[in-house]
Structures are given as C-alpha cells and as structure tokens.
C-alpha cells in the first residue's frame, strides 16, 4: 500500500454488521452491504463528532448482550456515545439508510419484512430521544453501502445498480 492509500484508509472507520462506533472529523464512518439492516448516523456538526450503528433487528430480546444489534437499544446507545465524545444533545441530528426488503417477491413472512420494521423501530427510538432525522434513504429492495463524512455532514449512499448519491 502506498502512502496516499494508507492515509485514505486511516481516515475511514469501518463499522461491521451489528456493530457501532464514533469518531471525529476528519474521519469518515463507513458500513457496507446494508440490506434489511439500517445504518444510523448521529452527528453534531458544530462539535464535528459523529457515530454510526449498523442495526439488524427492531427490538432486543430479554437479556440481550449486544446492544448494537437492535434498533430499540442501539440508537440510544449511539446517542450516549456521541455525547461522550463532545456531541451536544440539542445539536445532534440523524441520517439513516437501509431497511430494504431484499427479496420483494416473497413478502409473506415476517422475516422478509424485517427491513421496514427496522426503519420503524429506528424512527421510534430517534423520536423518543428528540433527535430530528434530516435525511433518509430507506426501504426499496436495494442493498446500500454508506459512508458519512464528519467534516461535511454528507452521507454517501452507494448501490449495486444505481451508482452513488449523497443525502
């Protein structure tokens, strides 16, 4: 790897499925291959801090240990984490993406509808915290890779078939 590539890689913090993390500008936060999962970005533009969580399921069962897997506990967890590194409650905003129904043709089972249910749960959790959602690219039947640039507040959404766009 040459220096330019290494520098580039060091600026991106990758968040895996059912994981979450926070960072400061000039870092970027990235998670790839969101299907029915939802990527939730919480950021405070004035403090230049942000967090990203990649939740899989809407609600946590009793005794769940991995909070970053579930929308209902993962979103409040991320909110706390962003405040811990300097985010101010009143300035925190949300951008969300994902929650697709990858297999549109077989909509009969609850499992296949988990995408829309995830989005609902994320919105509900954000609402409870009083965090406004300023941009969302959810639903449909496409996979998404997202990358949040903390310095600019832009969220790039890359899809397999429809290219990359920003929200």
């Amino acid at each position: 790897m040459n220096d330019a590539l290494r520098q580039e890689a060091e600026l991106v913090r990758k968040i895996g499925i059912a994981e979450g993390g926070v960072a400061r500008a000039p870092m970027r936060l990235r998670t790839s291959g969101l299907g029915s999962c939802v990527g939730v970005v919480l950021y405070d533009a004035t403090a230049a801090v942000a967090g990203l969580v990649h939740v899989m399921l809407p609600t946590s069962p009793v005794g769940a240990t991995n909070v970053t897997k579930y929308a209902d506990v993962g979103v409040p967890w991320l909110f706390e984490q962003v405040m811990k590194i300097g985010g101010k409650r009143d300035f925190i905003r949300a951008k969300i993406a994902g929650g697709a129904q990858m297999f549109a043709s077989a909509g009969q089972s609850d499992i296949l509808r988990v995408g829309p249910r995830n989005v609902e749960a994320v919105n509900h959790a954000l609402n409870q915290l009083g965090v406004p959602v300023v941009a969302a690219d959810v639903g449909g039947n496409v996979g998404r890779t997202i990358e949040f640039d903390i310095a600019t507040g832009r969220l790039s959404v890359r899809t397999a078939m429809r290219g990359t766009y920003y929200i």
Binding site: G35, M102, F103, I111, A160
Partner: peptide, 17 residues
C-alpha cells in the same frame, strides 16, 4: 424461492436474521 441480485452482504442479511 425469491431471487435478489445485489451486494452479497445485503442479500445475506436475511439469512442470518
């Protein structure tokens, strides 16, 4: 059966849910 042509990780979501 249901078919999806997309990013591998996005397709696999459903399997591991």
């Amino acid at each position: 059966p249901a078919v999806a042509i997309d990013m591998a990780a996005a397709i696999l979501d459903i399997g591991i849910l």
